[in-house]
Design a protein around this nucleic acid. Structure first.
Lengths: 507, 507
DNA sequence: ACCGACACGTGAGCC
DNA sequence: TGGCTCACGTGTCGG
């Protein structure tokens, strides 16, 4: 059970290894081969309910993919991050990459690479794929490098205590945002070869309660707090039904409400105690008055017990391994992954704690979490609504309503416009026609409105400019139609006619 | 100044009076003639900033129009409601009203009526129209009955203390919602003749701080609290810059926040004191736990002073006048318009008042109003977002975000689709063409792709079915293009050819 | 000084 | 019952 039997066969073949290595890189390939698959017999967590959120993150944005890395506990006692779910949106259509307008270049070299990618993916899948959805790789017809990184990520997992990549984000509970290619590759760790091939320039990791969301893009995307908040709002509720089990963890029961991203960590006011820890965060949405962000203060991994409810699939464990050793210049993780700094922290705002009882302490915590969830939704709403007038909650809602109505009107206009186009172009394609017999021949007549005719402007211009053209012949070659108009004109009028035609056709 | 000089001329003509009377009704016409125009020399309040909100209310909904009636103070000391702004969206295209498919029926009788409407509107405008935008009626080409009611509303104003119509709503500070034709006509008062002609079945009045919003529809729309909340959210801030003036009205300075619909009225808990007053309201959105609706408790008209800042235009004053006398069955206005019942009311929720001071009493009121404004925005958001999963604030925000993303994706898809269509159809309209001289004639050749040609299917079929047609002539008459294909065929093959052509063209 | 916006603790209602 | 949401009063910060 420490090695998959199918895998054995494939990796024994040296040629196959070379092929895979050429795609995923040497180091990753080595680890793929040598790593024992911890608990390869169990299935993935199944539907985590995050697919929709991931899709929304990617669609319509500059991100090329989003992956949710799920926390899983190892038999050894540690934890690891395994593939939870993902969404990829590679804009492969209309490539024209190198500035050369030859599409043949693409269809030659790139398509060859895509077929190679597909082949490697099939090998990976047959070796390490989960038993469930088979031949998923066979469905693909050519895998771009972007998709390759995304799809092959399924076969990686992270167990290291590195400060890079998803585990680095999870351990430090910090958002990692690398928007230049070198730093980016650092955080891709073993997948850096794949990331380099695909040309990724930005990768971001957002730690959540029971996992990490990874976003990647081939574009250089500057850090946006909006995106982070949107991630937290959209994916704040993964596997909510299962978190209901074991609501009390420690003696000090903390109600992990099931619909929280990382709210179990204790909030504190950054302005008072810990200004220095917020150097790498950019806050563009609003003033950070209260505590929606927090440093590493937490009482342990909240999903420690929760994660045991999930089983981790058959994936290659990626041990502490960083392909580059240089320190990222963009993220100063002063983390050291200190996950056990906790205790109650003083709150500044609001009323005095009314120190009389101890029993409603759970209630206030729940209310805190509810408020924070609502605020995250507000931040996420700010992220998707443009033209925010006054960084105000009420104004935000009003702007959102306005924006929704604008969008609805726009959609209605576009749809009616489309219908108009259809109504105008459909009967154009079905013109009146008639077939009649004359002597030994058949005469087919086809009539269509003048405006729908390709040569309508020419015909109109001729009719306006000259007397009726009178005689014209249309001839057809293989793929086109050619209309020829022979008209009687005076000397010198040709230039004038040509100008008129150009003017008429270019308007 | 009590009569407009142009008006004198028109109304002296008995024929003109008959024409107008046939459209607006006898009673309205009488009043239009006899009423002195109070303060006819001043202009309208100008842009109230409500146009966008009104448009959003109407667009994409079942409402045909929305009018904001603005509070104005009369020289006599009373107040009146005058036309503030409005938006109309009459779905006149694709009428086919009576089930008969003859469009000629419409273009005969209806178009005659529409021309009559336009004529009457021009008369009204020349008599009572404000001096500003002239010939607005001339821009219209045929005014439907729905538009007629809407446009002629500009020339009415309301001064009565009737329980019907906009003034009834304003006085009682209650929402009026009439969704059957008879009740509807009651509330249209003088405009009932117009409303009857247009077939209005639903009219709703929503009182705001400085006016009333009127919504009308030819459909029967059951009462929806969502709509009311949306009105209040979208139009809560009319003429906000002017309300800043004179912030303190009475000795007891009540903070009219400028962005409130009717928040100056004092809230109270309906469940305790006043359950019986909420019989006619339907609450479909959420449980009515707190007090977003309130009876007539108010300390006077909040816009009493504020309205003096505005001048009221030249409009016909509609005095206490109700065309029908029977009582509306849907709305039991037990109002008597008692606007001076106030005093502090006990609040049930929340913490004990911590009775020590009296100075933060203003603060709690402001906070109350802020909360209510936010809640109104939430209700309005619920009204525009479909597929609300869980009547929850957080879920609502999440659904709204999802919905916005869906809309954005949809718009992007539609726009790219439109671009695709344009890319496919635009070069069709600009085909390659060439002009050459041969002997004494000019030869113009126009070529286009076969697929873009109206006769493409015919040409393809001919080419597939027969040998090449070889000889064809295209002829043009006034508005169309006719292509004639003469082909050699065997006897009996004509029927077969015709079938093939039909099949090819209908696919 | 006021005022608007916000978060907090708290009481209460509803499954 | 307890979890969850909500509204309310209050403290606080910033303009």
């Amino acid at each position: 059970m420490w090695k998959q039997k199918m895998g054995e066969k494939f990796w024994a073949n040296e040629d196959d290894k070379m092929v895979v290595e050429s795609v995923v890189g040497r180091e990753a390939c080595e680890l793929l081969i040598s790593s024992g698959n911890a608990a390869s017999d169990v299935t993935l967590p199944g539907d985590l309910g995050v697919q929709q959120g991931l899709a929304q993150l990617v669609e319509g944005s500059n991100w090329n993919y989003a992956v949710f890395w799920h926390v899983a506990s190892l038999r050894s006692g540690g934890i690891s991050l395994i593939w939870g779910d993902g969404h990829c949106c590679d804009p492969k259509l209309g490539a024209a990459e190198d500035g050369s307008s030859h599409q043949n270049v693409r269809s030659d070299r790139v398509e060859k690479k895509e077929e190679l990618n597909k082949l490697v993916l099939q090998k990976l899948h047959s070796s390490f794929g989960r038993s469930g959805d088979d031949n998923f790789a066979e469905r693909l017809d050519g895998v771009s490098d972007v998709e390759m990184l995304y799809l092959s990520s399924m076969y990686f997992s992270f167990q290291s205590d590195s400060a890079y990549g998803p585990m680095g984000s999870l351990k430090s509970k910090r958002v990692i945002w690398a928007s230049d290619a070198p730093t980016c590759l650092d955080h891709y760790q073993l997948r850096s070869f794949l990331a380099k091939s695909a040309g990724f320039q930005t990768v971001a990791f957002v730690p959540l309660k029971n996992g990490v969301v990874e976003l990647g893009s081939v574009k250089a995307i500057p850090e946006e707090q909006n995106v982070v908040e949107m991630v937290r709002a959209l994916l704040g509720a993964p596997a909510s039904n299962k978190t209901k089990v074991l609501p009390k963890i420690f003696g000090q029961e903390l109600s992990l409400g099931g619909v929280k991203s990382q709210s179990v960590t204790i909030n504190f006011s950054p302005k008072v105690e810990d200004d220095s820890m917020f150097a790498s965060e950019t806050f563009d949405a609003q003033r950070v008055d209260s505590n929606q962000f927090h440093g590493g203060t937490s009482n342990g991994y909240p999903s420690d017990n929760e994660a045991k409810l999930f089983s981790h699939p058959n994936q290659i464990v990626m041990r502490g391994f960083s392909p580059q050793t240089r320190i990222s210049g963009l993220e100063q993780h002063k983390d050291e992954s200190s996950p056990y700094a906790d205790d109650r922290k003083p709150r500044k705002r609001g009323r005095k704690p009314a120190n009389g009882r101890e029993e409603p302490l759970n209630h206030v915590e729940a209310e805190r979490q509810r408020r924070e969830k609502l605020n995250q939704r507000f931040y996420a709403l700010r992220a998707v609504v443009p033209n925010i007038s006054k960084m105000d909650k009420a104004s935000l809602l009003g702007d959102a309503i306005t924006y929704i109505n604008d969008l609805q009107m726009k959609i209605k206009a576009l749809e009616t416009e489309k219908d108009m186009v259809n109504d105008k172009h459909k009967p154009q394609l079905v013109p009146d026609f008639d077939v009649q017999m004359r002597h030994e021949d058949a005469v087919v007549t086809v009539s269509c409105p003048l405006d729908a005719h390709p040569a309508s402007e020419v015909i109109k211009t001729l009719r306006n400019h000259q007397v009726a053209p009178e005689c014209d012949v249309s001839m057809k070659d293989g793929t086109g139609v050619m209309h020829t108009f022979s008209i009687r004109t005076q000397v010198g009028g040709v230039e004038q006619l040509k100008e008129k035609l150009v003017a008429a056709l270019s308007k």
